[in-house]
Design a binder for these strands. Sequence first.
DNA 1: GGTTTTTCTTAAACAAGGTTAAGGTTATTT
DNA 2: AAATAACCTTAACCTTGTTTAAGAAAAACC
Lengths: 191, 191
Amino acid sequence: MQAILDHFQNYLPLTETERELILARAKQRNIKRRQMILQEGFVCKHYTFIIKGCFKMYGVDDKGVEHNIQFAAEGDWISDIGSFHSQKNSRLFIEALEPSEIIQIEQQDLYFLYRNIPKLDRIFKVIIENKYVELQNRVLQSISSTAQQRYVNFLEQYPRLASRLPNVQIASYLGITPEFLSKIRKDLSVK
Amino acid sequence: MQAILDHFQNYLPLTETERELILARAKQRNIKRRQMILQEGFVCKHYTFIIKGCFKMYGVDDKGVEHNIQFAAEGDWISDIGSFHSQKNSRLFIEALEPSEIIQIEQQDLYFLYRNIPKLDRIFKVIIENKYVELQNRVLQSISSTAQQRYVNFLEQYPRLASRLPNVQIASYLGITPEFLSKIRKDLSVK
DNA sequence: GGTTTTTCTTAAACAAGGTTAAGGTTATTT
DNA sequence: AAATAACCTTAACCTTGTTTAAGAAAAACC
């Protein structure tokens, strides 16, 4: 549980009282591989912080194909922010790709923490600003680059993830078929 | 200038003192069509709020082609958040598509406001959360839908923007050529 | 109000990426 | 340890989107 305090303290120092408030409202869980912590049609009840392991967040199209919106590993947050705040049903899934350890905070608890620790507004503002910049780069890539460029870029930007994830998952993240990714990898290895 | 106070007060009420602090640090400007408020190779100095008019934010690839990352009109904020906070050179441009009126806050002034009005952390956290959700939907679309679906979706989601922008700009935003957008429009009109 | 610049469209040839199907390999599960 | 399921690759064929070029229509500028 110390992990989440350390995480916050990377951004701003916390007092002993603040740390206690947070710990009282954060719950630790173990998650099995393939287990889902959010499913389409349900409200996203938690902000989830990953201590260990790896998750994917994805949508499923009318043909039943999964499309990976995001990966998250140690030290990342994952949740469907839209559903979390609006309390409307999500159209997304969040699923463990590995056996994982997480810390979860429920919506009402997080709101309580925001009210009692104003610092947390700042911390989460900065966290999401960073995620926003990342996502914006991804949008730019997706409208301006070929699949091969996007793949090479993914390898450079997330080497740890790349070596840890099956190519099927990476292909889904890049918006291409596994077959085409296979071709790209062949082309790259020939060069 | 009242516009920016109204905007903040959509999120949370402000005291008279807070309103004065904000006004003292926000500067109003008029911008001509085609004028740039950010260019590649420069640091993004301001958070910009749009009172009237419309802007595009874009990157330019090695062939000199522009790729629109984002449009922003009345009531929106626009800035290269990454460059703004890191004070590193931006790789993006922000350019007026129409004669516009804006309010700008410099980095040091915004940081001053954050320090003196903790509420603003909350307000900007919520603003960027909303923008994050929007962007995430766009990523999902871009990895899961055809150009035609993305165009139809754009028309539905941003009807005001769609009728206000030239198709060339929309094509750039969708990640397709103007020629292909033209074909899509023809196909849609035949149905 | 006329001129220049941008915008929109069409079409043919081409490239990027998808689909289907099949076989081989590596992980997981029991 | 065997059996099942997931993963990776190849290749032929098909679809989606790009390129190039050219002409018409509409805006913006002076």
